[in-house]
Computed example of a mutant assay.
Amino acid sequence: MIPPVYSPADERYSDGNMSYRRCGRSGILLPEISLGLWHNFGAGDPLSRSREILRYAFDHGITHFDLANNYGPPYGSAEQTFGEIFRTDFRPYRDEMFISTKAGYDMWPGPYGNWGSRKYLMASLDQSLRRMNLDYVDIFYIHRFDPETPIEETLQALVDIVRSGKALYAGISRWPLEATKLAFEYLDRRDTHCLLFQDRLNMLDRSSVYSGILEETQQAGVGFIAFSPLAQGLLTNRYLHGVPSDSRAAQGRFLKADTITPEIIRRTRELNDIAESRRQSLAQMAISWVLADKRVTSVIAGCSSINQLADTICAIKHTDFTQEELALIDNAIG
């Protein structure tokens, strides 16, 4: 069935629809909510639903779409889904979109389909561009730190990718602090300033704060984009009373049932009470909490429906917390 011709909403950039933050020391503004395609956009997910979600996102001012080579399942299928919808719906609006992809985790068999070699990174990006029907991505990330490959090889591949025009900006995801400092310096010396550092940040996992990464990005003029703001669903009302049989945890997909302990349930119930007092859902408060830190450029949110995405977008309107609320959240976390 051929989808109806897409024409985006005229009011997609109207005041109050979406807010944007400057990305470090750059000319780029990103929406406070970015759409992540890690889950729910693979080959087994209905293309019609994916199209509906992507259209809704763009209609509501979400310009940034975050992918990686191995998102799916199977690997590559999220990029294929995005590429098909880009071809039919978004091609006329390419210059309004900020599209990212990454490489660093396993993608194809053999010694050249993983980690941080120049061969793998460049081959992976070429494959990603073909899958997404793109001439370039706006930002290409090293998805993880490779302790075996010389750091200069990995970073020079990033520099050369940007110089080739296949990516406009370079990004780093989930690197340790000292390697990150070296990377920022290396890239700056070659006029390829790191645009974004991507890492996990949520109320339950603040390692990017405690490790000094968030502070380092600010000092270096690098944007910070947070993923997993809902802690794989823990920071929703899904697990307030245990593990539902149809939940992600019950299926063992990334979130494991044995991690949802009575102590975790107690904490999330307390957090849910705080959210209700703010007239928010727990999920909305979790996203608002991340955005309350002005060092954060954007939050990557996944979703499986338009309703879920609509609820997520509402979180940008309530990012102010009283000191009492922040203290209550910290006490609930323990």
Rank of each mutant, 00 (worst) to 15 (best):
I2D: 09
L182M: 11
I53N: 09
P150T: 08
E148V: 13
S305Q: 06
W108Y: 12
T312M: 12
A43W: 02
K256L: 14
V162E: 08
A249T: 09
G302W: 04
A167N: 07
G76D: 05
N114T: 14
I265T: 14
L282P: 02
V222K: 05
S247E: 01
I99M: 01
D191L: 08
V243N: 03
A257G: 03
D199K: 00
Q218G: 15
I313C: 10
D146Y: 07
L214E: 06
R55H: 15
E84M: 13
Y112N: 14
P111D: 05
T319D: 02
P74T: 14
Y56V: 01
M203C: 08
E215I: 01
A283Q: 09
L234R: 03
T81G: 00
S14K: 15
S208A: 15
S304A: 12
P74D: 11
L230M: 11
Y169D: 01
R21W: 08
T259S: 14
K181A: 10
D135K: 08
L129Y: 06
G110P: 07
A231P: 03
G334I: 03
D89A: 08
L230R: 08
W108M: 06
Q80M: 13
C314G: 14
L326T: 11
F227Y: 11
T236G: 02
P4S: 13
Y6Q: 11
E215N: 15
C23I: 09
Y20Q: 10
T192H: 06
T217Y: 02
H143S: 08
S208I: 15
I225P: 10
V209D: 07
D258F: 11
Y105C: 05
A249D: 08
P74N: 03
F140E: 00
G223N: 09
P73A: 04
L182N: 14
R174I: 14
G61P: 15
S7C: 10
V5N: 11
E148P: 00
T149R: 03
S277D: 15
P8V: 06
N237L: 02
A123L: 07
Y20E: 06
Y112E: 11
Y239R: 02
D258R: 12
A292D: 10
Y186T: 04
Y136W: 09
S7N: 10
F65Y: 13
R49Q: 13
Q156T: 15
D135V: 05
E52D: 15
G116N: 07
N70C: 12
F227I: 09
G302Y: 06
N114F: 05
C194Y: 03
S100F: 02
D59M: 05
G44V: 04
V290L: 07
S19D: 07
G242Y: 04
L168D: 04
D138I: 06
I306G: 11
R267M: 09
K256W: 05
A292K: 10
D191Q: 14
D160R: 14
D135W: 01
R12M: 00
L30H: 08
I306F: 02
D188S: 13
R94Y: 06
K119C: 11
P92D: 02
N114P: 01
L29C: 11
G165M: 07
V209Y: 09
I33W: 07
G334V: 06
P3A: 07
K181W: 04
L235N: 03
L214G: 09
Q219A: 13
H64K: 09
L121T: 01
L35A: 06
L187R: 08
N70P: 10
N17E: 10
H143Y: 01
I264D: 06
F86Q: 01
A220M: 12
